[in-house]
């Protein structure tokens, strides 16, 4: 998922210098729900916004492998271990699909990775929270992937063809992620006293960060309107967040767990749940990299990339030698 846009509002000047006719034709195509394909003309701001959004999403998938990877070697049964390994592997695959989509816009994966490692590119704040018990793995599947799916389903109809196609593939594969998480929590919720406590504690810690995954409230989300016009965002942060809350509350009830929000209440008039205030101070602090594990997460990615650079260099050197040999 993980498509929250943390950037400053776009520089409008770039668009102004572009051919007004082409811009009008482009806007009309997008408004008519036509897909934009890689070689098509597109406004520079659209291209840049897409690169940022798709790469942020890709980075989130890849960084998102780490908090779950933290429990892979401690998974409590062979079945759970296989499920978790397959799920984390899917996330790597999703990152890869998304990097591929971004590459069609004229950036290299290497450049995108460099932007992540240097801190210029962001990833979802949710992965800067620690995974403290096995129940966190269930909670991530249920809540974090559940929130992700809300966004991703909408993005299957996004205006940029390669992005939309990546999302279709991702959504198909994601469908097991949320279910496995919920199932894992269900076992804990019906388990021993210690397991139930573990499950409730995980919900307590992951509930609010999950709500934050949808990004700042609409009145404080400067790029939303343009992104919605461009069909690279299909619904607003608050709409998606509300849909997630409405879907999740009954699921928590079915587990016999309580959502850590005393203000949470069904509103008969709106036919939605009302909920308490989200702590946006915390959200922005985590965006700034002040989350408990932010430094560890990014360092792990830097290490994987830099300490293994020799492997990629060796493969390229070998390929070069081999093609020289073949040419001779």
């Amino acid at each position: 998922m993980y498509t929250v846009d943390y950037s400053k509002p776009q520089d409008a000047r770039a668009a102004q210098v572009e051919d007004a006719d082409r811009l009008a034709a482009f806007d009309a195509r997008v408004a008519a729900d036509d897909f934009i394909e890689p070689k098509d003309w597109m406004p520079e701001a659209y291209r840049k916004t897409l690169i940022r959004q798709i790469s942020q999403h890709a980075h989130s998938e890849v960084v998102g492998m780490l908090p779950e990877g933290n429990w892979l070697t401690r998974a409590p049964s062979l079945r759970r271990k296989a499920i978790l390994l397959a799920k984390i592997q899917d996330e790597g695959g999703h990152g890869l699909y998304l990097y591929s989509a971004a590459e069609t816009l004229g950036v290299t994966r290497e450049e995108l990775i460099e932007a992540l490692h240097s801190g210029r590119a962001k990833y979802s704040t949710i992965f800067n929270y620690p995974t403290l018990t096995w129940a966190d793995i269930g909670a991530i599947g249920w809540l974090v992937d559940g929130a992700a799916i809300m966004n991703q389903v909408a993005l299957q109809r996004t205006s940029y063809g390669p992005y939309a196609r990546a999302m279709v593939r991702i959504c198909k594969e994601e469908s097991f992620h949320q279910r496995q998480g919920y199932e894992a929590l269900m076992v804990l919720a019906n388990g021993t006293h210690a397991q139930r406590r573990m499950a409730q504690d995980a919900l307590n810690r992951w509930w609010w960060p999950s709500l934050m995954m949808f990004g700042p409230p609409d009145d404080n989300s400067p790029n939303s309107a343009q992104s919605i016009r461009w069909r690279i965002k299909r619904e607003t942060n608050d709409e998606l967040r509300q849909r997630f809350i409405d879907a999740t509350v009954p699921q928590a009830e079915a587990l016999g767990l309580s959502i850590p929000d005393p203000a949470l209440k069904w509103n008969e008039a709106t036919q939605h749940y009302d909920c308490g205030q989200i702590d946006w101070e915390e959200f922005y602090a985590v965006v700034r990299g002040e989350g408990a594990t932010a430094k560890d997460r990014i360092q792990a990615r830097i290490d994987a990339w830099e300490k293994n650079a020799w492997v990629r260099e060796a493969a390229l050197a070998h390929a070069a030698k081999r093609s020289t040999k073949q040419a001779a």
Binding site: V62, M65, L66, G69, L72, T73, K81, L85, I88, Q89, G92, G93, G95, L96, Y99, A300, D303, A304, N308, A309, V311, R312
Partner: peptide, 10 residues
């Protein structure tokens, strides 16, 4: 499993 998330390329 210990390699997961830490390999040279995706």
């Amino acid at each position: 499993c210990e390699w997961c998330g830490h390999a040279p390329t995706l």
